[in-house]
């Protein structure tokens, strides 16, 4: 093959590709990138992918899932916020990465850099202890914490369950020693091995384990207003006289300045997907509950969460300068 032939061939290839790309239509007209800022395999990844496939079918363009893990979701959110606000980049965010992270470190984004699209799912924060533990209730826990030496764990400093627990401790005027874990699974192992007396995790992480003799853990409190459907036998904080409502949620955001039509189209489709029977089945396996909010409600949620978490961060000395 000569050089000219090769060049000709590549030009023909190029031309045909250009024609394909020029068939313009209304939004969406090209692949949408969905950033999942967590490693492949986790519940968040599964939920993102659960939305991606039907979203692609509904909109008629590929929805490309890319995982960009790091810093509890902040790295992926930062990458999404740096993208062009054209409606072709969305990212999965959580209470921790969207509301709290920008207040804690220079993360490359603030609440103002994002356009809320749709909140998707939630699960309440849950306090667990080993089955053999003398702690059975929130009152027991608070008694055990009185001297400030109780050791507890969570899936990471700055994670939803960490901030939620610290907010609760702050409200009750108690302190404790935190041992960090890389995942909820690791925090649960620390409870089982006796290294820590209590762990704060997302309810979805332990809903499948309760009653399993191989994992002798018990729930001492679920931070939801009413009994959570995935853990109907576990008492809420409120029932024990300590009203505390703390859902951990995940939702979709886009860079600020994304056209409203794109935001509304995406939000409406995501709502439809979340209410479908297939999603209900999948969410049940992850022990999550659908919790759709439209862009306006979701934006308000992110903001109010940030305001409440700011107080906790201030008390902990974790607010950025």
């Amino acid at each position: 093959m000569s050089l000219t032939r090769a060049l000709q061939a590549s030009m023909v290839l190029a031309a045909s590709l250009t024609v394909a790309g020029m068939a313009l239509a209304d939004y969406p007209e090209k692949p949408i990138r969905m950033i999942i800022p967590y490693a492949q395999g986790g519940a968040t990844d599964a939920i993102g992918r659960m939305v991606a496939d039907p979203l692609s079918a509904a909109l008629g363009v590929p929805v490309v899932v890319t995982n960009q893990p790091g810093a509890g979701g902040a790295v992926g959110v930062a990458a999404a916020m740096a993208a062009a606000p054209d409606g072709y980049t969305i990212v999965v965010g959580s209470d921790s990465s969207l509301s709290a992270r920008p207040l804690m470190t220079e993360s490359g984004y603030t609440i103002d850099s994002m356009q809320a699209v749709a909140r998707a799912v939630e699960a309440p924060m849950t306090f667990i202890v080993a089955e053999s533990s003398p702690i059975n209730t929130i009152d027991d826990l608070l008694t055990a914490m009185a001297d400030g030496n109780m050791v507890w764990s969570s899936p990471g400093v700055g994670s939803g369950p960490f901030l939620g627990a610290e907010a609760f401790f702050n409200e009750k005027g108690v302190t404790a020693q935190h041992v960090t874990a890389d995942s909820a699974g690791e925090a649960i192992i620390k409870v089982l091995s006796g290294e820590v007396q209590m762990a704060s995790v997302v309810g979805s992480n332990i809903a499948g384990m309760i009653g399993d003799p191989a994992q002798p853990i018990k729930v001492i409190g679920v931070a939801s207003a009413e009994r959570w459907s995935r853990l109907p036998d576990s008492p809420t904080f409120a029932e024990q006289g300590h009203p505390f409502d703390r859902p951990v949620w995940f939702g979709f955001v886009a860079p600020a300045g994304t056209p409203p039509e794109a935001v509304n189209t995406l939000s409406a489709e995501i709502e439809k997907i979340l209410t479908s029977p297939e999603s209900a089945e999948l969410l049940a396996t992850f022990h999550m509950t659908p919790a759709y909010q439209n862009p306006v409600e979701f934006a308000a949620q992110i903001k109010s969460e940030a305001e409440s978490v700011a107080v906790v961060l201030q008390a902990l000395g974790m607010q950025k300068e």
Binding site: P69, A74, V75, T105, E106, S107, G108, V157, D182, M318
Partner: peptide, 22 residues
């Protein structure tokens, strides 16, 4: 490099968000 798991403080990130995750 990145956010310290124990304290939540960023280390050696030099203001680059890409380095927050290590």
């Amino acid at each position: 490099v990145g956010i310290d798991g124990t304290s939540g403080v960023p280390r050696f990130t030099f203001g680059m968000p890409e380095l927050l995750g290590g």
